[in-house]
Write a protein that binds this DNA or RNA. Structure first.
Lengths: 345, 345
DNA sequence: TTGAAAGCGCTAACAG
DNA sequence: CTGTTAGCGCTTTCAA
């Protein structure tokens, strides 16, 4: 099977032209006579000829593929980013090659290596070790070596020369969340989080403390609850721990939609009501927020815009334009039904 | 950038050996002297040399890539299948190239065309027009033409010669669901569904009617509610329509997890309780089922096994083994908290 | 407007 | 065990 692939040589021979002419017709160079275009086009159709992207890539020393390394395609956050990036890449005539590392750090190395071998024209990395506050030296070295031959764009802040970053503004995200809750009258606010080793969490936590101070509210350390993962079960666990405390906040934030959905489950399981007993606010605003009852109010990133900037940055890097090292996307707040005003008795 | 890529020629020259020797070392053919292996390996490390998969593919006329066309990577069903397929492909030394068609039929054509041009060794197609009961002639023709050069495996039943299928057993799924509900004492069962143009839905519906008859239960047509999409909003809409009816079933099934989550929302919004007032049962059992409160009881497909069979079938097809045209994966039922026994008064 | 010919970077006989 | 050589299928000067 497939051994008998037809090539431009076959087409050329049968059409009585040179392979070069077939090649020209394939890419639509106008410098070919109508007549030959017709003959060749017909043969292309007749044989269902699909020119080999492999041969073309070898010859042009570029693949028109853009590699993507994502921490976890099962996570709706990443799958949203990915979907949007696909659209953007297609629009520009590129095809995305996604490698998911399934949250396993060692797979980041193999993913990057594979993409380098595939000679993708650029690599977009979202999540994983690039987000670590404490950079991993081995991984950094790999990144540096690949950067010599392939353009790299991170879906987070870049601290590296000649590696670009497009990042959510985590601090502004927290601001939005806090402002909203405070405006609703909440003065006692808790936060269920995970991943302090990552920038996103660290920045949110720091901004949380700062904003509390600005608003003249006391930070209650026991309401800052660290859980093991970004999943639903972690959210439930957070609530279990919270509910053992003698005093309770009136509003709670969860680090992402899954954790917050878990928190909601936990509260409901205890016969508590949202938003009557607790206001709940989430970060990311993936479709998860619309699946729960009540639906979750969440800080929202425009994934379309995010993807656009990611791919644009990659394109500009390839065109050797002067690209700014870091770009940020501005979060907004999408209000649904999980938060209510708090009126102190 | 990247123009100065190092090749096996550079390595060979500097090591004082032939390119062929470098090539042998790269793939680990044992027939090279220790000494040369050492010298070459060192240079490979020194230059961070990554052999070009493009050149290799051209030379071997195979890419070791397996293409995947998925209807909607945002849908957790497909992202689960994809993740599992990634693992399976990696294990076998293949790398997956995913193209999402974002549920737009016209993108199926471009996705297949691109994968054919990329010369992937096999293509796995999940969802989209291949699942249509009424096959699309244009699409079928494309499929037939690609099948001449590339092995194709469908994530559903295949009706085509030399195209293989790995499919969920939809009829058995419905059986499992019905048996469970009937065993709980439900006699009045409704079904919110969409996609009658697809096999999966048609088979479920037919089996639903048949099972009702077998159990001696009357089918109430007004409880078979067709909604516009596979999303949460459709589920809510289904419930709205159901609640206008004079009589109500005691148990409801939703065509997938999103629809069922929407149904749950709809019921809760009306002050109804699950499972006390209505039992709710879903199909697919993606992680969505664990995000709602109560968590959803659902018919479960083993995605790991599904992916395994999909990729295995592709491998066997490539090895020209005698592959059975269609294989099925056997569903199971995962019981959570959305169904309760029904005791007629 | 067209064709010849030299690559692109690797692999795989085939000799030696 | 190792080197030479001829592709793999397309693009791209360079001439004509």
């Amino acid at each position: 099977m497939g051994r008998n692939k037809v090539t431009i040589y076959d087409i050329a021979r049968e059409a009585g032209v040179s392979p070069a002419t077939v090649s020209r017709i394939l890419k639509g160079s106008a410098t070919v006579s109508e007549e030959k275009v017709g003959r060749v086009s017909e043969l292309i159709r007749k044989y269902n000829f699909h020119p080999s992207a492999v041969a073309r890539a070898l010859s042009q020393t570029r693949t028109r593929m853009i590699g993507m390394v994502m921490a976890d395609t099962g996570n709706p956050y990443y799958s949203s980013v990915y979907s949007a990036c696909c659209d953007e890449a297609y629009k520009r005539g590129y095809i995305p090659m996604l490698l998911s590392t399934q949250s396993r750090p060692e797979m980041e190395v193999s993913a990057l290596t594979k993409l380098a071998e595939q000679r993708v024209d650029a690599i977009v990395i979202c999540g994983g070790r690039v987000d670590l506050i404490e950079p991993d030296p081995v991984f950094t070295r790999l990144l540096m070596s690949i950067r010599e031959t392939t353009h790299i764009v991170l879906g987070s802040k870049s601290r590296y020369e000649r590696i670009y970053g497009v990042s959510v503004d985590h601090e502004l995200s927290m601001n939005l969340a806090m402002d909203y809750l405070v405006k609703l009258g909440h003065r006692e606010i808790g936060f269920v989080y995970t991943g302090i080793q990552y920038y996103g969490t660290k920045e949110k936590l720091e901004r949380f403390r700062r904003e509390m101070k600005i608003h003249g509210l006391p930070v209650r350390e026991e309401w800052l609850i660290q859980v093991p993962g970004y999943d639903c079960g972690s959210g439930r666990e957070g609530i279990e721990r919270l509910l053992t405390l003698p005093q309770q906040p009136t509003a709670l934030m969860g680090i992402n939609d899954m954790v917050t959905a878990g928190m909601l489950q936990g509260l409901l399981a205890h016969g508590l009501h949202v938003p009557e007993d607790y206001s709940l606010l989430s970060f990311d605003d993936t479709y998860i927020t619309t699946l729960t009852a009540p639906q979750l109010t969440a800080v929202d990133y425009d994934y379309g815009q995010y993807a656009h900037m990611l791919i644009d940055t990659a394109m500009e890097a390839m065109e050797e334009k002067g690209v700014p090292a870091n770009r940020f996307i501005v979060p907004t707040l999408t209000v649904r039904s999980s938060c209510a005003p708090f009126n102190c008795a």
